[in-house]
Design a protein around this nucleic acid. Structure first.
Lengths: 219, 219
DNA sequence: CGACACGTTGATTACGTTCAAAGAGTGTGG
DNA sequence: CCACACTCTTTGAACGTAATCAACGTGTCG
């Protein structure tokens, strides 16, 4: 659990006493936008999507959480966004009260959380650039490279990138329609940059050219 | 200075001893993307724009700073974004070393900074929704309402909203072209929702209908 | 006055969306 | 076991909107 990586063994065991486990199936909602923030979580396995919704149903996915990521970094009294499982997922859960107490006692834990919040903010701003200024091809290419880099950071191979989320999720993340996402995958495939053994795995055939398409927005 | 609002008088005076002042004229750059982060700043007057740039010149403005806002919340060893003055601006400046020491000694200061970082993250995610899912009219309307709300938070009137930034800045913030921004202002004017005494001040004539156009994305 | 930056407006184009349909994969029930 | 329903993805055709290209207007400063 990445949030613990800054702690000593005795501190970790203290943390473990306060925590409980949660299992989620695909599309299960963990928390809903606007709900009071009673518990915080760290993802141990699977993948979560974070999203904001408009009254008319439009949706923006603000990010995908991978194992080690923390849920509730930005939120205050209530959750500002919905969190749902993309695939079967496991989480460690703490009451906000317990976590506040632990943070008080273990400065390293607090520093770690602050660090993660700052990284999330940098990431969110990078995403603003992607949403506001990149073309569909650039968006999809940078998304693939980003997911590949995150896989590597988790000790997984860089190349068959696994995308457990649907095309709708990708579209709602990149500010596109599912048709445009699908067509863009097809285009990258036609150009020989990727292979699509199936819709949820992407083999990167030419990383350099893909990075060029992405406009060197490697994150 | 908002960053001090959580401190006691003697703590504030301690802070003041470590700080120096900076003045910027319009379009002066305070820090550049990629530059090492040696100092941090709080804005005392004026307005700053934060931006990311692509090699080909495309630009995304990630936010506008108003007095009380802190520069360097997200940044680590280097600044992740460029900060430039939109209008004549004044700032308080601290060396990172001094600030780290002060944060160590005054927990309230640290908590305050963490709180501001979390608020910035929520804001950035709200902006992701604006960039990814709103139409040009909705973008401009929500931008006007947001700037109006921030003016009110600074004790200024809600209605003639002052927009010291150029149309190019607004376009680069909302992910549009200057022509579209200009046309959208004209359209809102024609619909009787706003008045445009001059390009840099917007009088809100019908706040409710403007909020409807914004898609109830009031932040 | 002339040069320049900024904003607005108009005409045209092009790209992504929308609408529509078909294909692929999966699970359920007859 | 297969038919059927359902979801997800892909592909095609038509449309519409924002981008692009271009010109003009306005204000400011040297």
């Amino acid at each position: 659990m990445a949030v613990c990586s800054a702690l000593q063994d005795d501190e970790v065991s203290e943390l473990e006493r306060a925590m409980s486990f949660v299992r989620l199936g695909p599309n299960d909602a963990l928390v809903e936008e606007g709900e009071p923030r009673r518990r915080v979580y760290t993802l141990t396995s699977g993948m979560l999507r974070l999203s904001l919704a408009l009254p008319d149903g439009r949706r923006q996915i603000t990010g995908f959480l991978l194992p080690g990521d923390y849920l509730g970094l930005a939120d205050d009294e209530t959750y500002a966004q919905t969190a749902e499982a993309v695939m079967p997922s496991g989480l460690c859960s703490f009451s906000v009260r317990d976590m506040d107490r632990l943070v008080e006692r273990f400065p390293r834990l607090r520093d770690r959380l602050h660090l993660m919040t700052r990284a999330a903010l940098r990431q969110a701003r990078e995403t603003q650039m992607i949403l506001g200024r990149l073309t569909p091809s650039e968006k999809v290419a940078s998304f693939l490279l980003s997911m590949s880099a995150r896989a590597v950071a988790h000790g997984r191979p860089a190349s068959p990138v696994l995308l457990p989320m649907t095309r709708t999720d990708i579209a709602d993340y990149l500010g596109l329609t599912i048709e445009t996402v699908s067509r863009t995958f097809t285009k990258l495939k036609t150009q020989g940059l990727i292979r699509l053994p199936d819709p949820h795995s992407v083999e990167i055939l030419d990383r350099d050219r893909l990075a060029t398409v992405a406009g060197i927005t490697i994150n």
